[in-house]
């Protein structure tokens, strides 16, 4: 029964659209052209600001993170990440327990060298105050992190804790969103992950008198640890 209702609704809406457009279903040659357009997904204008060499894109990315009220730290290699996380938490007077993404890159880091740190690998729970996430890519154009959901990259880590720390490899920084989409298509064989978050700075609201306050429902602090190699 529900199936009939659903089919009926679909036919009604499509019929009304075609009546408005004063035609029947698209002729096959036109539909074919539109399918081609979907496969080719042509890019439109990409702003010049990100059309710069890679090191300059990394610099632009970090500058934009700061502009959007995020912070960052640079480390030379993956082995230096735990120390950078420990330093940040200490400087902010934050607890040393955190939820960490079960991502192989993160799990391979020498967390045990910092016995003060207490990572718990998994998704975030309501009680977690700090999270450590892995970024798939980052967009220099606006200082935006791309965080696609995957078993090794749970979405709750981006949302529930008060402080979100994101580990990002410098070679994952691209200039424009379009370049990040193409990397994602290549990595997933073209099928979209359940959830792709583009995150630009910490959570905020301007609903009270149009004045900006950080930390609305999501993290109040967003800290990027950039791994240079």
């Amino acid at each position: 029964m529900a199936g009939d209702i659903a089919t009926e609704g679909r036919a009604t809406i499509l019929g009304a659209i075609r009546r408005g457009l004063k035609r029947g279903p698209l002729p096959e040659d036109q539909a074919h052209m539109l399918r081609e357009r979907l496969v080719e997904h042509p890019r439109h204008l990409i702003p010049a600001r990100s059309r710069i060499p890679h090191p300059a894109q990394v610099t632009l990315f970090l500058a934009n993170v700061e502009k959007e009220f995020g912070t960052s730290a640079l480390v030379p290699d993956a082995a230096a990440v735990p120390a950078a996380v420990a330093d940040y938490l200490a400087a902010q007077n934050l607890p040393t327990a955190f939820a960490m993404a079960p991502h192989p890159e993160l799990e391979a880091m020498p967390w045990a060298e910092r016995p003060m740190l207490r990572p718990r690998v998994g998704r975030a729970e309501a009680t977690d105050l700090v999270s450590v996430q892995q970024a798939f890519a980052a967009v220099a154009e606006t200082g935006t992190l791309m965080l696609p959901s995957a078993p090794e990259r749970p979405t709750t880590l981006n949302l529930l804790p008060d402080t979100a720390i994101v580990v990002l490899r410098a070679d994952a920084v691209v200039g424009a969103y379009e370049e990040a989409w193409d990397r994602l298509r290549a990595a997933t064989g073209g099928s979209m992950p359940r959830n792709v978050m583009l995150v630009t700075g910490p959570s905020r609201s301007a609903d009270i008198e149009q004045t900006l306050e950080l930390g609305a429902h999501g993290p109040r602090r967003l800290h990027v640890v950039l791994v240079e190699t």
Binding site: T144, S149, A150, P151, R194, M197, T200
Partner: peptide, 16 residues
């Protein structure tokens, strides 16, 4: 701050 693309429900090995 958050521009989020949702596609389908939870995948088999997803934690959330």
């Amino acid at each position: 701050v958050y521009t989020t693309f949702s596609t389908g429900g939870r995948r088999p090995a997803d934690l959330d």
